[in-house]
C-alpha cells in the first residue's frame, strides 16, 4: 500500500474529510466538544484549530512509527502520543490567549478522548505513508472546524445577535438566549443533521428519477 500510496492522487484523501465523510455531520464523531464549545464563532474556530493541530501532529507521528509499534499495545501507544500533543497545545494556547483558554476550559484537555483523532490514527495513519496521513488528518481537521463554525455561527447569531463579536441585528434584537445555553447546542446540531438528511434524500430521489433502471 505504501508503494502505490505515493503515486495515487492525494486530493480525494484530502477532500473526503471536508465533505463526503465529514467527521461531525456524516460520521457523528467527536460530538462532545462539538456541542460544548460551539456557543460562539471564535470559540468554535479556536477549538477546531486546536483539534486540527493535535490531529495532524499525532497522525504524522503514528504514521512515522507504524512499523515500530507492537500490535498488542498500539491503542495505548496512540493515546500516549495524542495526550502528549494535547498537553503541548494546551500550554501553547495558554500562552497565546488566556481568554480563549479560559472559555474552552477542560475541553482543550478533553481533545485526548476525541474519537476522531484515535479513529484516524487507528483507521488511516497506522496503515499509510506520512504524506497521506498528514493530508487525511488535515482534511478531517478542517472538516471538523467547518462543522464547528457552522454550529457556532448559528448559535452566536441567534443567541447573542452577533457574529464574531460584531453586532448584526442592532439594539432592538431580543437575544434568543436558549441558543447559547446547552439545549441550543442539541437543537442546532439536530437541525443541521435534519437539513443534511433532507439534502441527501432529495438528491437520492432525483438520481433515482434520472435513472429509472436503477430505482427498482
Amino acid at each position: 500500500m505504501t508503494a502505490t500510496g505515493m503515486s495515487e492522487s492525494i486530493w480525494p484523501v484530502y477532500t473526503r474529510g471536508l465533505w463526503r465523510e465529514n467527521p461531525v455531520f456524516v460520521m457523528q464523531l467527536g460530538m462532545c466538544p462539538t456541542l460544548a464549545v460551539s456557543n460562539s464563532v471564535i470559540n468554535s474556530l479556536s477549538m477546531g484549530l486546536a483539534t486540527l493541530a493535535v490531529l495532524v501532529a499525532s497522525s504524522a507521528l503514528v504514521s512515522l512509527m507504524r512499523n515500530v509499534i507492537p500490535k498488542q499495545v498500539r491503542i495505548a501507544t496512540y493515546i500516549v502520543i495524542i495526550a502528549t500533543f494535547v498537553t503541548v497545545v494546551d500550554y501553547a494556547l495558554q500562552a497565546i490567549s488566556l481568554d480563549i483558554h479560559k472559555a474552552l476550559g477542560a475541553f482543550i484537555q478533553l481533545i485526548v478522548v476525541n474519537c476522531i483523532i484515535l479513529g484516524r490514527a487507528e483507521a488511516f495513519a497506522s496503515k499509510n505513508s506520512v504524506v497521506r496521513a498528514i493530508t487525511d488528518a488535515a482534511g478531517m481537521g478542517l472538516g471538523f472546524t467547518f462543522a464547528l463554525i457552522c454550529l457556532g455561527a448559528v448559535r452566536e447569531l441567534l443567541g447573542n445577535g452577533s457574529l464574531l463579536g460584531f453586532d448584526v441585528f442592532g439594539p432592538q434584537f431580543e437575544p434568543w438566549a436558549i441558543m447559547i445555553l446547552p439545549p441550543g447546542g442539541f437543537f442546532v446540531l439536530g437541525a443541521w443533521l435534519l437539513v443534511f438528511a433532507w439534502f441527501k434524500e432529495r438528491s437520492a430521489r432525483t438520481a433515482a428519477r434520472k435513472e429509472p433502471s436503477h430505482a427498482g
Binding site: F187, A191, L193, L194, A197
Partner: peptide, 16 residues
C-alpha cells in the same frame, strides 16, 4: 429524513 441522529438530538435538546 428524521430517522436517526437528527431526531435523537432534538429529543436530547428538549430533555436538556
Amino acid at each position: 429524513m428524521a430517522r436517526g441522529a437528527g431526531l435523537t438530538l432534538m429529543v436530547a435538546g428538549i430533555l436538556s
